[in-house]
Design a protein around this nucleic acid. Structure first.
Lengths: 347, 347
DNA sequence: GTTAGCACTCCATTAAGTTAAGTGCTAAAA
DNA sequence: TTTTAGCACTTAACTTAATGGAGTGCTAAC
């Protein structure tokens, strides 16, 4: 366990701030000027040597100024940083962007990713509150003409999932009506999670009372159901990557950029809802492509409706204090907005 | 009007090929070796000086080899190039990728963009056959619970468009039934184009017989209708841009990449269905960001169902012959597949 | 514990030199 | 008239050397 003196802590803080803002290694002379302590550059050099021995700062070459190491950022984030209070202008942007009318939860969550990326100028990810606790509140099959039928599934939160199918030859619309009624009778009110479980077991059996060959229907129902219950992942500010990337080589840029389209991969990296705010720096992120970046994830809570995630990806040299402050505000505002939305439908 | 001798034409062709394949300016000595004519490098140099005087090739510096100018590519494409016969392996890829089962025309068209980008390793755009000739074949409003209703619009091609709305307070489901029946009676069979026109004129008048305040319903119907009638634009192989870009600067890369997300902007650049195959090179493209690239657009024809577009964006130094050959094959296969699809629904 | 002073290191920039590829031109050959 | 050999010349790209500046570690004195 590392403990720093007041002065060492001040120096580390100044190095992190200067490097984050200016992008250049920080030398002892410039530190003397801005620090509120009156010592010579030689003293600062001694202290810096100490911080370096602890592994908190490193040189880019033998006689260069210092930059924070990953361990240094870590210490800064854990022990020094205080989340910045959100600017009232920024808060207004957040509130205004969430203030409009939305027709879907996913719209709100996707929009959040965009706004947060705008405010931070980094890349952001959002995950809606888990769907597995949502309950089935309706299922319909709407015939659309000779060959097609639309399956619609509604949850108690007002989430609507639909999909159009070409009707299997061995099914007619008339046959399906009692099946739909059966679904409505038996399954409405159950969490989607449970419905999915039953789909593997009881349902096929019971359906065989109504249909000779229930496979066609089960495919349709299963497909819409699992689409409705799947996690959904939104990415904002992809283009910002061009601004903060450390890669020069277009090939490396390409693989990094393409990672942003691989939602399952990203979802894995980000993980599940957990502690309030988590900061992962450099190689603490479990993906080699991101080992030069920092990832901040925050879990937001919508009471009994579950938890979701917002996350920001940026350079290791980022203004953590500001970013974390912004995310805190976003967390609160988003939770508030979603609660309002859920209440409207779940009455 | 430029006319070249046989030999000059051969030299230009060789310069285009070499530069396209190797990326380096082409000198007189290497040309001597590969050309099927027995002359010395000095003679080639004389001919090259002539081609340069005509503006077909340029030097990168005073004593460098030559590269084709835009005018040179133009001449090559117009007078020398022969579309390459498609490799049977490539043809199989195309046919296999279009052979699967699709539930929507847009899926086919989007998939096409992806496959073509894979085969060319460039960026591709596809536009589905114009929707304005499609006819309305059904409109439904499906109530989904306390507050929501889903509007579904079907066309004679099996295209389905749907949108979920929060019900305006002054509308109830019961009121809407006769309205929907009215829509079905009056408008089914008409081209979407005409329906859109009527929406501005007669329909609001007639609706006032059924509803006190028809605005809520008109919003819903209009919104789904215009969504159904809007052009849709697919982009494939965005990431390939990283491979063939000429930009070094991340900022320029960013603006170029962001152009790929601006579909209306792109649609403008690409234009409307027109001549069979059109090649635009460098500053012939009406967008400054693309002035170092080439854009090949091809119109495909699905009989009375209208025309669509496929397009490829790549470097000016691209293997035109191969690319155009591929696009020709794609044009045919896509038209065939779509015709089959339309026939299935429009019976 | 702090500081002045100094030798030392490394990056970044500039300048100069070298090589290889390619050109244009001239005068002779075909 | 066309082609060719030969040569002087140009330029990019690379290598090497020189210089200045920022910053460090260490020592000895405060």
């Amino acid at each position: 366990m590392i403990t720093l003196t007041e002065r060492q802590s001040l120096i580390l803080k100044a190095i992190v701030r200067d490097y984050t803002e200016g992008g250049n290694p920080v030398g002892s002379k410039s530190l003397v000027q801005e620090l509120p302590i009156k010592v010579s550059s030689a003293t600062i050099r001694n202290e810096m040597a100490h911080l370096e021995a602890l592994g908190l700062i490193v040189k880019t070459h033998l006689s260069s100024g210092r930059i924070p190491s990953i361990k240094g950022y870590r210490y800064y984030v854990d022990h020094i940083l205080k989340p910045e209070k959100v600017d009232s202008k920024d808060l207004k942007v957040i509130q205004h962007s969430l203030g409009g009318e939305f027709h879907k939860i996913d719209e709100i969550v996707a929009q959040s990713a965009d706004i947060l990326s705008q405010l931070t100028s980094y890349t952001t990810f959002t995950l809606r509150p888990e769907l597995k606790h949502s309950r089935l509140s309706g299922f319909r099959l709407v015939p659309l003409g000779n060959h097609q039928v639309m399956a619609i599934l509604v949850t108690n939160n007002g989430d609507v999932e639909n999909q159009t199918f070409t009707i299997p030859n061995d099914l007619t619309g008339d046959e399906l009506e009692p099946v739909v009624r059966f679904i409505d009778d038996q399954l409405i009110g159950l969490p989607l999670q449970d419905v999915l479980a039953k789909l593997q077991q009881e349902i096929p059996l019971k359906l065989s009372h109504y249909l000779q060959n229930p496979d066609g229907f089960l495919d349709i129902f299963g497909s819409v159901l699992s689409k409705a219950a799947s996690e959904r992942f939104y990415v904002g500010g992809k283009l910002n990557l061009f601004d903060y990337t450390t890669k020069q080589n277009p090939q490396e840029m390409r693989s990094l950029y393409s990672l942003l389209d691989q939602t399952d991969n990203l979802a894995n990296v980000i993980g599940s809802p957990g502690q309030h705010i988590q900061v992962r720096i450099g190689n603490e992120i479990t993906n080699d492509l991101l080992k030069d970046y920092s990832l901040i994830t925050a879990t937001y809570d919508v009471d009994q409706h579950g938890q979701g995630i917002i996350a920001v990806l940026g350079p290791t040299a980022m203004p953590y204090s500001r970013t974390i402050g912004l995310m805190g505000a976003f967390q609160r505002e988003l939770a508030r907005k979603l609660l309002e939305y859920y209440r409207y439908f779940d009455e």
